[in-house]
């Protein structure tokens, strides 16, 4: 028993502490989502009322097409996540495994460009997409397809870098063996690397999904049609307004919107943890 204590007590104590730290703000979100007043004022830690008004409002008010927002977010984030991994994985593989001239330069460029404070990129991207709109409105400013392109392009550097980090952690023995067997890099990529890296790719996919799901600075300029907004833009208007803020509806909406992500996370958590390193080629 004392051995158990010695070895496990600190583990439980620390984990419990961190759990409370994690849950605390979330608890307050849940609390305010059940308050009819729509305030964020945290006057009491014990729920005083259980009002479903905020949830009802999300589904009944014609002004709030909440389900469309969720659908938009899911579609945009999924497309961006999958496409960015498809495009990024190839580059990451090349950076990690192939030898070629200018590789070092390429990697450095990739890394440094991410440190460019690209806040003005917003203006540049806006101008570019405005021009695209003038000849192809369906993929220009104001369209979801246009936003997807912007996200995909804007996150390319980060995703390649991230994927490269993961790919580096996958032992190269197998694909080197394939190379000795006479496989071309393209074949190695498809036949050896991709199956091996699937967990890694899935994780980066998920990270990219979450990142896209949360974005609102660009989205609020692109998706102005009420029906076409993402959840982040839609919900932000409850509290970002100049006139009034409704924290209750915001909290309720946030909880509902994060349910799909939380479910994905929880059901895939083992997979994610393994995927984040994917170092195990034991099997």
């Amino acid at each position: 028993m004392s051995k158990w204590l010695r070895e496990n007590l600190w583990r439980h104590a620390f984990a419990t502490f961190m759990c409370i730290f994690s849950l605390f703000p979330l608890y307050l979100v849940v609390l305010s989502s059940f308050k009819s007043s729509g305030s964020l004022q945290l006057d009491s830690f014990v729920p005083k009322e259980l009002s479903w008004d905020n949830y009802k409002m999300l589904f009944s008010s014609p002004k709030i097409p909440f389900l469309s927002w969720v659908k938009n977010s899911l579609i945009i984030s999924s497309v961006v996540a999958i496409s960015s991994v498809v495009v990024g994985a190839a580059s990451a593989f090349a950076f990690s495994r192939l030898k070629f001239k200018g590789k070092k330069f390429g990697i450095q460029l990739l890394l440094l460009v991410q440190m460019f404070p690209a806040v003005l990129a917003l203006s540049a991207v806006y101008v570019i997409m405005e021009r695209v709109y003038s000849f192809a409105p369906s993929i220009g400013l104001g369209s979801q397809a246009g936003l997807i392109l912007v996200y995909l392009g804007g996150s390319m550097g980060v995703n390649i870098w991230l994927l490269k980090g993961f790919v580096d952690s996958i032992p190269a023995e197998l694909d080197e063996a394939a190379k000795i067997d006479g496989a071309s890099p393209v074949q190695t990529y498809w036949l050896i690397f991709i199956p091996l890296a699937t967990p890694v790719l899935a994780v980066v996919c998920l990270l990219s999904f979450i990142g896209t799901f949360n974005e609102f600075i660009v989205a609020r300029l692109f998706l102005v049609e009420m029906q076409g907004r993402t959840v982040a833009v839609g919900l932000q208007q409850f509290i970002g307004g100049q006139y009034a803020s409704n924290w209750g509806a915001f909290a309720a909406g946030s909880i509902l919107a994060s349910i799909p992500i939380v479910i994905i996370f929880l059901s895939l958590q083992k997979y994610i943890v393994n995927g984040l390193t994917a170092g195990s080629v034991k099997g």
């Binding site: 961190m18 949360n214 996370f265």
Partner: peptide, 12 residues
């Protein structure tokens, strides 16, 4: 529980 902060939309 520990991955909840990560899974929730950060803007919120």
């Amino acid at each position: 529980i520990l991955i909840l902060p990560y899974a929730m939309p950060s803007i919120m």
